[in-house]
Simulated scan of single mutants.
Amino acid sequence: MAIEDTDNAHLYFPDEAWPEYRVLAEFDGQIKYKAPEDLWKEKQRQDALTRMGWRIERFIWADFKRLDVLRSRILALFPATVARTARPVADLWR
């Protein structure tokens, strides 16, 4: 899914998106940030998405060691009514 930033003429491609709730999950690996300007570009990207009303949570590999915590972090992005009714998918949250 692409998200268009019409103010800055950019297209963003998030790792995971729930557009009906304006929620994004982003996975960050170390390879992604090879130079200092890479981190600056990523900050500008996140700032633009936040200004457009998206809620964003970022993850790293270590976060997958505690799936219960990871699940809580993701659910916290959604409205309370959605989070209360969400049920884990067995293959994803084992």
Rank of each mutant, 00 (worst) to 15 (best):
K65D: 12
D68K: 00
F78L: 15
D38I: 15
I3Y: 09
P14E: 06
L39G: 07
A2Q: 13
Y33M: 06
V69Q: 08
Q30H: 14
Q30G: 13
R58E: 06
T81C: 14
F64M: 00
Y33G: 04
A9D: 14
L39H: 11
D91G: 10
V69D: 04
R73W: 02
E20H: 07
A80D: 11
P36R: 12
A86D: 14
Y21W: 10
P79Y: 12
A80H: 14
A90C: 02
V89G: 06
A2P: 07
A86T: 15
I60D: 03
D7Q: 14
E57Y: 03
P14R: 07
A90P: 01
A86Q: 14
P79W: 13
A62C: 04
L24D: 02
L92Y: 05
D5T: 05
R94I: 06
L92V: 10
R71Q: 00
Q44H: 13
R71F: 01
A86R: 14
L24M: 11
D38G: 09
R73Q: 04
D15S: 03
F59D: 02
A9L: 13
S72D: 02
T6L: 10
E4A: 11
L39T: 08
R66P: 03
I3K: 10
E4I: 12
D38C: 13
W40K: 15
P79G: 02
E20K: 11
I60W: 11
R73N: 01
M52I: 07
W93A: 06
W61N: 04
L75C: 05
L92F: 06
I3F: 05
A25D: 05
K43D: 10
E37H: 13
F59G: 02
A76C: 02
R66L: 11
M1Q: 03
A90L: 05
D47N: 15
A48F: 04
A9P: 03
Y33S: 07
D28L: 03
I56A: 03
R55G: 00
M52E: 09
A83W: 13
A25M: 14
L11N: 08
D68H: 03
G29Y: 11
Q30F: 06
D38W: 02
R84I: 09
D5C: 10
R87S: 02
E37I: 05
I74C: 08
D68N: 06
E57I: 01
T50R: 11
W40C: 11
W40I: 15
R94E: 01
K65A: 08
V69H: 03
A86Y: 15
L75H: 08
L39Q: 08
P36A: 10
T81N: 15
P19H: 00
